[in-house]
Design a protein around this nucleic acid. Sequence first.
DNA 1: ACCTGAACACCGTTCAAGT
DNA 2: ACCTGAACACCGTTCAAGT
Lengths: 192, 192
Amino acid sequence: MSLSPALITETARSLLIRYGLPDVSMRRLAKELGVAPGALYYHVSSKQVLLTQVAQEILAPLRAEAADARTLMLRLRELMLPLRDSGDLLLLAYALDPRLPPAHVLPAQLRAQGWSEAEASRTTAAVMRFALGAIATEQNQRLLDAEQDTAVQNTADQNPGEAADEDPLAVEAEQIYLHGLEVLLARPSLRA
Amino acid sequence: MSLSPALITETARSLLIRYGLPDVSMRRLAKELGVAPGALYYHVSSKQVLLTQVAQEILAPLRAEAADARTLMLRLRELMLPLRDSGDLLLLAYALDPRLPPAHVLPAQLRAQGWSEAEASRTTAAVMRFALGAIATEQNQRLLDAEQDTAVQNTADQNPGEAADEDPLAVEAEQIYLHGLEVLLARPSLRA
DNA sequence: ACCTGAACACCGTTCAAGT
DNA sequence: ACCTGAACACCGTTCAAGT
């Protein structure tokens, strides 16, 4: 089988899922496809557009879902959180396309709930920015914790006193996310 | 004068201000200091800790300011927005230290306004995530617009029909930021 | 049309060896 | 103690040349 834009983005996506964004390099991608690095540039104009394409594909399932704003925002977090370091990716894709799912349906949904057009579009932008910031923060915290864990591994082996707790940081992160959504998506009449 | 952690972070900061984050590499930094790249690692353990140190220094002025939450968050945006691509930097520094200014004083301020401790800490986390997401988004949009501008330069020269407008995207971005702050920092009694 | 080989101009980090 | 030189293992991108 020969190369194609679709095959390249699909392979990039699989690398992202398996190893995280830092391991999605053009050279690694080429190796995975059994091809010279330069070959990719016959099908894809740059790494940046390739990655935003990948982001769009990962979020594509959200286009088919008919759920309310809150649920869609929760799904966004579920989809992206496991992809290591993908926060930057999302931030870039959103800057390039402010209609990135789930932002593509939020304004219409909020309008249907009685929001004005100006309020609906401002709130969509605000809630997306909050979500992207929150997801990137959570991913960074996980990475940093993982580094610290491996660094402390030996000391922990010699000192198994404290039990492994339920990762209160992760639980807290989810509460923060829920809280932000609740406040930002609250009906405007409640604030007037 | 010889190398020191302080001199290195100060030079990194000046590179960041002058050229943006992509131009702050250890090798570029070494060249700027007239030293071999390896020399930096005698004073600094990694690029990551160096950059978070730089972020802390850039935000240090906020530690001295005695302003309300909203003003501090606006100052945060003013400080970071001009530093090209520094959003990632901020996201990393905040993940490493959730008490990064202005987060270090927000909980106490909110408590003084009658918020409960739980509400104050959750709101601080939410508003910081929103701000970091918003700043990163704005910086990315600027970068992408700049790329497009240089690409369209020639066509624009030949076609000077439309006047250069007031950059409505930037104005809109500020409104979104103000709106997010207003909603997230609204007194909890107004939502109960 | 599609791809290779090779190059250009970079990265972060380590480490023996020098002073 | 502090730094150099050189290496290791990478980057994104371009482009003549091949098929």
